[in-house]
Design a protein around this nucleic acid. Structure first.
Length: 291
DNA sequence: GTTCCCCTGCGG
DNA sequence: CCGCAGGGGAAC
């Protein structure tokens, strides 16, 4: 799912569900790729703790704990971080969905994909982290412990300037889209927003980075901010898995110009949108508007 | 730089 | 059956 806007939406809406509540009980699935910190360690360390803040760096969420430790979370491709009260068909498999009448609202019950369950000592809702593909990550950092994943992040995509992009582009012969996806250059951009910002900027994703002009880099930086901010405004993009912590869908998927529109007419010039592959990702562009 | 892999599910 | 999917890291 999640790129910067979806992670930011998750941060804003999960924070009030966590702040100043004492964790009473922690349930996990068995150890897997998902757990950078062993599940047994989490079950032992988290009870008794309170979250004092939730921040975001690129696509990572960081929950500060009241003892100075920090919980590092990444949603991967299919991560869902939500309150127990959330009701959304996106929390169900398609077979489960098919068995339901459209109006039914089913309370979510933790399943085999619900890798982390935080239960509190008050009457409020539990908080769950579910991730079908297990590309997500959870790690408990000790006081002042750093993490190489955070250390290598570049400037946040909401703050990147045209000059930053221009400087990073000069020595690169790879495609500009690959540069945008490189989290050490600029943190938070993923496949959807790279394609969308390049479309608005009139730049083809396959363009060699060093061929970008200063003015195109300025345009690109502006359009990245525009696209990311607009997506945050609309609650993020709910393409297949993303739900907000309250179970709400985002709506940005209804506004994409090129992403997911292969074979459809460009909204600007009606030329058929094409799909190619860059950095192992489906890449969507208008061959007429983007040069 | 590419290429392959992690994992599960959906849709053609 | 096959290809595809908002991610990222390690190995060539």
């Amino acid at each position: 799912m999640p790129e910067l806007p979806e992670v930011e939406i998750t941060r804003r809406r999960i924070e009030p569900l966590l702040l100043e509540r004492q964790i009473a009980r922690v349930k996990t699935t068995r150890d897997s790729y998902f757990f950078l910190t062993k599940p047994k360690t989490l079950r032992r360390a988290l009870p008794g703790r309170r979250v004092t803040a939730v921040t975001r760096q690129g696509k990572y969420l960081i929950a500060d704990l009241d003892n100075g430790q920090r919980l590092l979370l990444h949603l991967g491709m299919t991560g869902q971080f939500f309150g127990a009260g959330a009701t959304s068909v996106r929390l169900l498999s398609s077979t489960q969905r098919a068995a339901l009448s459209p109006e039914t609202q089913v309370k979510f019950e933790p399943d085999e994909h619900t890798h982390l369950q935080l239960w509190f000592d008050d009457a409020g809702p539990a908080v769950f982290f579910r991730d079908v593909r297990k590309f997500g990550k959870v790690r408990l950092l000790k006081c002042n412990e750093s993490d190489p994943r955070l250390d290598r992040l570049g400037i946040d995509a909401l703050k990147v300037s045209g000059e930053d992009l221009f400087r990073a582009s000069k020595p690169r012969k790879a495609a500009i889209k690959n540069l945008l996806l490189d989290q050490s250059v600029c943190a938070g951009i993923g496949n959807i927003y790279a394609d969308e910002a390049l479309f608005i900027s009139g730049v083809r994703p396959t363009r060699r980075a060093f061929r970008m002009t200063r003015s195109e880099c300025n345009q690109l930086a502006t359009n990245l901010q525009r696209v990311l901010s607009r997506s945050i405004e609309t609650g993020g993009a709910s393409i297949s898995d993303f739900v907000g912590p309250d179970g709400e869908d985002g709506h940005y998927q209804d506004e994409t110009q090129v992403y997911g529109r292969t074979g459809k007419p460009c909204h600007h010039c009606a030329t058929t949108i094409r799909r190619t592959v860059l950095a192992q990702r489906g890449t969507h562009y208008c061959p007429s508007c983007q040069r």
